[in-house]
Design a protein around this nucleic acid. Structure first.
Lengths: 251, 251
DNA sequence: TATAGTTGTCTAGATCAATAGACATTTGAG
DNA sequence: CTCAAATGTCTATTGATCTAGACAACTATA
């Protein structure tokens, strides 16, 4: 029983949409890798096969694979084929007691959180609304980048009421932990109240901080933490490199 | 005090990345609209101004605006300018008791859930693992599209253990509600156990079902619901059009 | 050690994306 | 009514992307 291999198996890419074919194909192959479609061999199919599946020239497939090699996802070896170097997404848990480093601990060896900068500034209307302050009230902003195994995973801007937590920046710099910096101000426990998640294309700053290429996606989580009396203590906007992370919600 | 308007204000777009400039610009303007940056006038800045900000030719900006007009986001009027027609994202709540239509009720006037098809099939390893079955055990699959105010918001594939809920497809078709279809099988209550969220580029099927253009983003939520004894009753993969939705997590 | 199968490199041409400039058409304000 | 400001349309040109084909270089295996 012969099987139609041409049109029936063809993976569709669309033309004239502002996204180059090689980039569409790179996105599809990246997805296939992360889905485990090529786990049997640990290799991407040969360029000629991919070109046939997508209905494009082999050179177009080569451009796509070159982009994935640039990302460190695959490595081409002349004569052998193109091997998969990396496939997993790191899972980031979101629950009542989300603490960044805890949840990731067993998934990546090296976790680094780097403080990019801090400032004391008047709350914007967005931040004031979230923290239950009046616009213009002073808040401390911490800007951080977190990475796992050397790759940046997220950039965050976090805001704290400056009146209640006057030494937030110094304590964080000293202790390298938000939880410990809260403890230094006499706050021993806090819980996550709500999280809103949107996905969008990365802007220029995110592209550079997360080492992404244009067209890449970020998952933005806007989260609010409060003390056990329900008073907001932290509002943060974290942006995750979507191709490296998933968010796991635990209820 | 003069202010440098050229380089200081320039919004960066990157070239030769496989994403056409007009599409990068369309994405940035869409984001600015949803952020409310243009709320003061209700209009997008003039084409010549945008061209200056992005450092591109006016025709390139026109291509971007044409794409946004195609999406129904803006409408250009000769002689006046380009008006914003629509800006909001619909918020989709995720909590212990997420029910699709309830949470959206006050945000969109018309909610429609359309059954695309159903089938009884052997569980794949992914579905079996989630539902606590053995691979190959029979499951009922329901494939649906949901829309709000005429625009598609999500496509879902949901899986139910066929032994326990033998008439799932018929009951859903009759009652137009998963909750009621469960009730018809004697299950009165169920809760969400976990949700995993990833963001990625839409594949060809999603582009067509959600009426998106290539390069668009979907938020995929893989969720598991269980009865009050903790036995899994539903596993579903919902894919949301990311530019129309946000997910709100309530703990 | 051949040989099939794979990636690497080069050339040439066709199609799409972006720039540049000129001018028409419509709207709203003075 | 006139004019400035905005979008609409057209032509021409350049640079990026995609196709096509040929062949080189390398790897594993029979």
């Amino acid at each position: 029983m012969p099987m139609r291999k041409d049109t029936a198996m063809r993976k569709v890419v669309e033309r004239q949409t502002g996204v180059a074919l090689w980039r569409q194909i790179a996105d599809r192959i990246r997805l296939a890798i992360s889905n485990g479609d090529y786990d049997a061999t640990g290799m991407v199919p040969p360029e000629t096969v991919l070109a046939g599946e997508f209905g494009v020239n082999r050179h177009t497939v080569r451009s796509a694979l070159a982009a994935l090699a640039e990302e460190g996802l695959v490595r081409a070896v002349q004569g052998r084929g193109t091997m998969i170097e990396r496939k997993e997404r790191v899972s980031y848990p979101i629950s009542k007691r989300t603490r960044f480093s805890q949840g990731l601990g067993h998934q990546v060896k090296e976790i680094g959180t780097q403080l990019l900068g801090h400032a004391e500034l008047p709350a914007t209307s967005e931040v004031a609304k979230a923290l239950g302050l009046s616009p213009g009230d002073p808040v401390t902003e911490l800007r951080t980048v977190s990475s796992g195994d050397g790759r940046p995973l997220s950039v965050s801007s976090s805001y704290y009421p400056a009146h209640r937590f006057p030494r937030m920046a110094e304590e964080f710099e000293r202790l390298h932990s938000v939880t410990k910096a809260f403890a230094a101000h006499g706050l021993d426990d806090y819980v996550r109240v709500s999280t809103e998640i949107v996905a969008r294309h990365a802007d220029a700053e995110e592209l550079s901080m997360l080492k992404l290429s244009p067209g890449a996606i970020v998952l933005e989580a806007q989260s609010l933490n409060a003390d056990l009396d329900g008073r907001p203590v932290e509002y943060s906007r974290s942006r995750f490199a979507a191709d490296r992370m998933k968010l796991k919600i635990e209820t």
